[in-house]
């Protein structure tokens, strides 16, 4: 089964790195979708089927926390797993995002294996152990 993955980050470079890690991880990706902030992400989510959202927190226009809240209160989107990928590595921030409905939290800098394992945990399947 091929998964559609939405990467939400205001840094095009970081979106590209995340996409590369997903490619290397061996996850069967149908379509990579990208958004530069939460507002753009919602437009994508209401037009495309998405199996996993990977989102940064600090972004202009609509941040990752607001995006998470919008996704969780929308019946059409609420079951989509959300993996937060943020520069904020504080335990408090991770706990807060998880309590708001995030399914996972990874802080930058991250190891490719960490991102891969979290994706497989949320999508199902076995991670590529070659990392």
């Amino acid at each position: 089964m091929a998964f559609n993955i939405l990467i939400v980050d205001d840094s095009p470079a970081m979106r590209r790195v995340v996409r590369r890690v997903v490619d290397i991880s061996g996850v069967d990706v149908g379509t990579f979708l990208e958004a530069g902030n939460g507002l753009e992400a919602l437009v994508v989510l209401r037009a495309e089927w998405v199996d996993l959202i990977m989102t940064d927190i600090n972004m202009p226009a609509m941040d990752g926390e607001e995006l998470l809240l919008e996704v969780r209160k929308d019946p059409a989107l609420t079951t989509i797993p959300v993996l937060v990928v943020s520069t904020d590595s504080s335990e408090g921030r991770a706990k807060q995002m998880l309590s708001l409905g995030a399914d996972g939290y990874i802080s930058k800098p991250f190891l490719p294996a960490t991102l891969s394992h979290e994706m497989y945990r949320l999508l199902g399947g076995a991670p590529n152990e070659s990392f």
């Binding site: 840094s11 590595s89 504080s90 921030r93 930058k108």
Partner: peptide, 19 residues
Amino acid sequence: NMLCGSAMSRVEGERKLIL
């Protein structure tokens, strides 16, 4: 962004980090 966020996150506190 990552250097600042990484350093700021190690500062114990209650307020949200905004970059």
